[in-house]
C-alpha cells in the first residue's frame, strides 16, 4: 500500500474582502460575489512567499507523519510563484525541514496543478520502491492584475503531503491524468501578471479536463460517485467546482468540506491540495475521497484516496484548515493590500 502518511497546510492571516476590491474599481460587489461565489481571499504578508508557506505546511505535515525528516528522499515544490527564476525553492524548504543533504529536489510548474504534479511524482517514486518517503507541496502566492477578474480570487496558501508505505493516513486507490495543449491561461517569461482567454478558460479548458480526468479515474477504479464520501475539484472560483461536480454525478454535500474557495480564494497550485487537506480534517476511516486538479495549459490529475484509521490519531497533531480559515484573521483595505502585493511602484 502506498499513500499519505502526513499532511499539513498553511494560510496567511491577512484577508481582503471581495467588496473592497470591487469598490476600488467601481464594480458592483454583489454582482462579483454572486458571479464568483467568493467572499474574501487570503493575502500573503510582506515577508511571506512560496518558500515560507511551503516550510510552514511541511512542518505541519511532519508533525502528523511523525517520521525522521532525514528519511524523506524527494522534495518537490509545485507553484507558479517561485521567488527565484533560477534557484530552487525546494532547497530552502528541505534545509529548513531538516531533510538535506541526501535528497532529490525539484521545483514543478504547471499552472494550478503543479501541486498534484508533485504528488503524482512522489507517489510513483514511493510505489516503485526508490524512496521510503517523499514530500510533495502545492503552494502559491497567486498573481492577479489590478482591476482584472483574477484579482478577486488570486490568494495565498499551500499544503504539503508526505507519501510512504507504512502508517498511512490515506491509501492511494487509483490515479489518472488527462492532458492536452490548450492555451487558456499563461504568463510569459518576465511578465508580472498572467493573462487568460476569458470564457475560453471554461468549457474547452477547465470543464473538459476535469471531467475527463474524473470520468477516467472512476472507470479505472471501477467506482461510482455514490461510492465516495467526499470530492474535491480545483477551485478557480466557487461555481466551477460545483458545476463540474454535478456534471460528474456528485452532490453538493460531497463537496462541502473541500469547497474552501469562498473563504480563501484560489490558491492556484495549492487550491485542490488544500481542499483535500480540509477534507482529511473531517473524514473518517474508510471514507473514499476523489481529488481532481486542473492546471491551465492544460491538464488534470485525479487521485482516489481511502482514509485509514490513523486519521483519528494524527488529525489534531497540527492546526486544522478550518482553524486557519476562521481564527486570527487580519483584514486589509485596498491601499494596504496594494502595498503588501507590491502593486505600488516605488523608487529603488
Amino acid at each position: 500500500m502506498v499513500g499519505i502518511v502526513g499532511y499539513g497546510s498553511y494560510l496567511p492571516r491577512y484577508r481582503i474582502k471581495v467588496e473592497d476590491i470591487a469598490n476600488q474599481w467601481g464594480r458592483d460587489p454583489d454582482v462579483i460575489k454572486k458571479g464568483l461565489l467568493v467572499n474574501e481571499k487570503t493575502v500573503p504578508g510582506t515577508d511571506e512567499d512560496t518558500i515560507t508557506i511551503s516550510v510552514e505546511a511541511g512542518r505541519n505535515a511532519l508533525k502528523r507523519a511523525g517520521i525522521n525528516p532525514k528519511l524523506i528522499g524527494s522534495v518537490y515544490v509545485g507553484s507558479e510563484s517561485h521567488p527565484y527564476a533560477v534557484k530552487p525553492s525546494g532547497t530552502v524548504v528541505a534545509e529548513a525541514l531538516g531533510i538535506t543533504p541526501e535528497v532529490h529536489i525539484a521545483d514543478f510548474e504547471f499552472a494550478c496543478k503543479a501541486g498534484t504534479e508533485a504528488m503524482w511524482v512522489v507517489y510513483n517514486e514511493v510505489k516503485s520502491g526508490e524512496l521510503q518517503y517523499g514530500l510533495a507541496i502545492g503552494t502559491d502566492t497567486s498573481q492577479g492584475a489590478p482591476g482584472g477578474a483574477l484579482e478577486y480570487t488570486a490568494s495565498a496558501g499551500g499544503t504539503a503531503f508526505i507519501f510512504g508505505k507504512e502508517n498511512l493516513v490515506a491509501e492511494v486507490i487509483e490515479t489518472y491524468s488527462y492532458t492536452t495543449d490548450t492555451p487558456d491561461f499563461w504568463r510569459r517569461e518576465g511578465a508580472y501578471y498572467p493573462r487568460h482567454g476569458g470564457r475560453f478558460t471554461g468549457e474547452p479548458a477547465y470543464f473538459k479536463h476535469v471531467y475527463n480526468a474524473g470520468i477516467g479515474v472512476l472507470k479505472k477504479a471501477n467506482l461510482k460517485p455514490q461510492d465516495f464520501t467526499y470530492a474535491v475539484f480545483h477551485m478557480p472560483n466557487g461555481k466551477f467546482p460545483q458545476t463540474i461536480g454535478k456534471k460528474l454525478g456528485f452532490t453538493k454535500k460531497q463537496l462541502v468540506p473541500g469547497w474552501i474557495v469562498p473563504y480563501m480564494g484560489n490558491t492556484y497550485s495549492g487550491s485542490s491540495p488544500t481542499g483535500l487537506s480540509a477534507t482529511f480534517d473531517v473524514s473518517k476511516p474508510g471514507d473514499l475521497i476523489l481529488i481532481v486538479s486542473f492546471g491551465s495549459g492544460a491538464g488534470s490529475d485525479a487521485f482516489v484516496f481511502k482514509v485509514t484509521e490513523r486519521i483519528d490519531e494524527v488529525r489534531d497533531l497540527a492546526p486544522k484548515l478550518k482553524e486557519m480559515l476562521d481564527e486570527n484573521k487580519i483584514y486589509l483595505d485596498y491601499g494596504k493590500y496594494a502595498k503588501f502585493r507590491e502593486k505600488i511602484i516605488m523608487n529603488e
Binding site: R13, D49, N328
Partner: peptide, 23 residues
C-alpha cells in the same frame, strides 16, 4: 516562531530566510 523572509537584497538579489515571531 514562524518561517519568514528576513531580507532581500533588492529585486535581483538573494533572499534571506529565517525565524520571526507571531502572537
Amino acid at each position: 516562531f514562524v518561517f519568514r523572509k528576513l531580507k532581500d537584497e533588492g529585486k535581483t538579489g538573494v533572499i534571506i530566510y529565517g525565524y520571526k515571531a507571531q502572537l
